[in-house]
Every structure is written in structure tokens, then in C-alpha cells.
């Protein structure tokens, strides 16, 4: 059975991807580098935003430097800084 993970887009990431969330097919060894590539393949406009965004996995801050990989069912949030007020 195919397993999935979810990506949520906030603020300008939502504007660039034109959706507030996506489902991706899960596979082994999706680390943050692979994840970035998957995201850009689907939404090229995210390029400048991903570079400055914070990532959260299952509602917890994720350090992109760590040797982390996506688990089936994970919910990944892309959180760019919002500066308006």
C-alpha cells in the first residue's frame, strides 16, 4: 500500500504554491534536501521562499541540518517569515 506524507503551506508559501496543503507519496530516505527538490518540482515559485522558511514536522520545529528523514504520515509545515503589521 502506498504511504503518504502531508505538506502545509503558510503565508507567502501558500500564495506561491496556490494551495494550503499537498499530499506526497512517501518513500525511504527523503531528507530535507530531497524534500526541497520534491517541493520545487511541484511548485517552482517556492524557490526563494523555501530558502528563508522555517520547517516544522508534526507541529514541532525541525532543524534542517540534522540527519532527518520524512516518516509515513508526517505533516510538514513550511513557515516563511511574515513581516506585515
Amino acid at each position: 500500500m502506498t504511504q503518504h506524507f502531508k505538506v502545509l503551506y503558510f503565508a507567502s508559501a501558500k500564495d506561491a504554491s496556490k494551495t494550503d496543503g499537498d499530499k506526497f507519496e512517501w518513500s525511504d530516505n527523503i531528507n530535507s534536501e530531497v524534500l526541497t527538490k520534491l517541493l520545487l518540482d511541484r511548485h517552482p515559485d517556492l524557490a526563494p521562499i523555501l530558502k528563508v522558511s522555517m520547517f516544522a514536522v508534526n507541529m514541532e520545529y525541525m532543524d534542517q541540518d540534522l540527519s532527518w528523514t520524512v516518516q509515513p504520515g508526517d505533516e510538514i509545515a513550511i513557515i516563511p517569515p511574515v513581516s506585515g503589521g
Partner: peptide
């Protein structure tokens, strides 16, 4: 705090 369009942090 920050806010734009329909979103805030």
C-alpha cells in the same frame, strides 16, 4: 507579532 492578508504569526 506579524500579519498580512489573512495570516498572522
Amino acid at each position: 507579532g506579524s500579519a498580512l492578508r489573512l495570516d498572522g504569526q
